[in-house]
Structure formats: structure tokens, C-alpha cells
Design a binder for these strands. Structure first.
Lengths: 134, 134
DNA sequence: ATAAACCCTGGAGCGTACTCCAGAGTCAAG
DNA sequence: CTTGACTCTGGAGTACGCTCCAGGGTTTAT
């Protein structure tokens, strides 16, 4: 697979792939170089790119994702350590979810109060009434 | 209140406050200028800064927060429009939470599978056994 | 054989959210 | 009245995650 096909299949730009390589997220374990010096990727690169995508979606920086990958692939790291590391990452995600939930509830409360205030001051009919009249 | 006190009370740097002002998140509604040209803030600035903090925690960019503030303060925007706008923002947060939850579940599943694989291949004793023997 | 479409590298540029600095004025304590 | 801590402005610098470009070589279709 040449770089543009990988880009297409992963939904990324060719530049992004070369950038990921530059910062160490992709390396020669994912491709070989032929006579023409073109990268010839194998399927494993798509798995790696999916992992990067998931990591980003979970709010990790590329540097953190690099760390995770390094931890995962390090043979001198015991499975127990890997498990501990990933459980730590999972709990970071849980913390993030809880934080977002708190923000959500806070904003929701503010909004509800604002809605109530609107009905009471009566500058506009309450939405329910509008709906009833429609 | 001088700028350094606001910074201290809000847990931000003086530079950050001036930066927020530069991009329009803070303005002369939050302070007056004395003879010496120093900013003299009133308490309202702390409310604004808290709003910015919450917005950022919810994953909005400063530009988006600026928009939100502008929408909120615009007199020509009807309460109904404001409510609709904020309900939209709330649903964005909900989407984010759902996304994080999916990522969490995905990683958790992977981790569980890895743990199982570790137990089966038996390169190490299962954690439970380790605990039992301890 | 030639043109279009691809590949390569190294490096510049961009948007976001700060952070730091120079150079100048102001204020408070001793 | 000096000294040190504060304030001001404008602008440069930083880290992140790309994105684009120049200037070169290669492949492919006609």
C-alpha cells in the first residue's frame, strides 16, 4: 500500500501520516522502502492509526498516545504493569467524563433558572403556552 | 481590585487576563481606568472568569465562549433564541460525554480481553491468584 | 516520449492559548 | 528620595497538531 492509499483508507492526509512518522507514532515496523524509496505499508498501519484516532477522541495528546504505544510494545514491561498503566488511563477518561457531566449539570441548571425567570417576568409567553396556542 | 489581585483570586496569571482582554473576553464593563491608567476591576470580572473556566472545561474554545457571551449579552437577541442557543451547546456537551463513554467502553473491553489472554497463556499468574497467595 | 500524477525531504506557516520580555510609567515603604 | 514592587503597551516566543510548499525524483497512461 502506498501512502496515499493509507491516507484514503484512514481518512487522513498524506501530510498527516508523514507528520505522525516524524513524531514517532509510525515507524519502519509499518512499512518497507522499495528501490524507489517509496514507503510500502502493510495493513498493521491501519490498526495503529485507529488507535491514534481513538486516543485523540479520548482527549489524549499525540505525545501521550506515543507513550501508551511505547508502553504497550515494550517487551521489558510486564503485563501487570501494562494493565496498571491502562487502568490509569481509563480512570483519567472517567475523570473527564465526570467533569463534563458536572459542567453539563451546572449549565443545565442555569438554563432552567433562566427559563423560569423568563416566564415569571412575562416579557414573552412561556414556550408551553406558545405550543398550546399553536 | 488591581489586576494582580484578580489574577490571584481567579487562579490565573496577569498575562492571561490581559490576553483575554485582547481577544475580547473581558472589556471595560469589568473595570474602569484611574488617572494612572491602571485597570480597577469590580467583582463582576470574577463571574466572567468563572464562566470562561467552565466553558473551557466543557471543551469550548475561547472563540466559542466569546460567542456565547455575546449571545447572552445581546439585547436584540430574544430570550427564546438564547434558550435555543444554550440548549444547542448543552447537547454538544452531551455528545462529547457519549463519545468519551464509547471510547471508555472500547478501551475497557480491550483491557479485559488482554487480562484474560494473560491468564490463559499463563506467562504470569492471574492477578487474583497473586492476591490469594499474598 | 512526454505529461500528469504520484512519491520524497526539509522546512515554513498557521490557529489556539497562552507566556515572556523590553521599555516605560506609578506607587508605597523606609 | 531612592528602591523595589507594581502597572502599562506592543510584540515576540512557545507547544500542539497539523498543513502547505519548493524542489527534486518516479510511475503511469497515452
Amino acid at each position: 500500500m502506498k501512502i496515499s492509499e493509507v491516507a484514503k483508507r484512514a481518512g487522513l492526509s498524506v501530510d498527516t501520516l508523514r507528520f505522525y512518522e516524524k513524531i514517532g507514532l509510525l515507524d519502519s515496523t509499518h512499512y518497507t522502502r522499495g528501490e524507489n524509496n517509496y514507503r510500502a505499508y502493510d495493513e498493521s498501519v491501519l490498526v495503529r492509526l485507529e488507535l491514534i484516532r481513538h486516543g485523540q477522541a479520548a482527549g489524549f495528546t499525540l505525545a501521550e498516545i506515543g507513550e501508551v504505544v511505547a508502553a504497550w510494545e515494550a517487551d521489558q514491561v510486564s503485563p501487570a504493569q501494562k494493565i496498571a498503566y491502562f487502568e490509569g488511563k481509563l480512570s483519567e477518561i472517567e475523570t473527564q467524563i465526570a467533569r463534563l457531566q458536572r459542567i453539563h449539570d451546572y449549565l443545565n441548571l442555569k438554563l432552567e433558572r433562566f427559563k423560569e425567570a423568563q416566564c415569571l417576568t412575562g416579557t414573552r409567553p412561556a414556550p408551553e403556552r406558545l405550543a398550546e396556542n399553536a
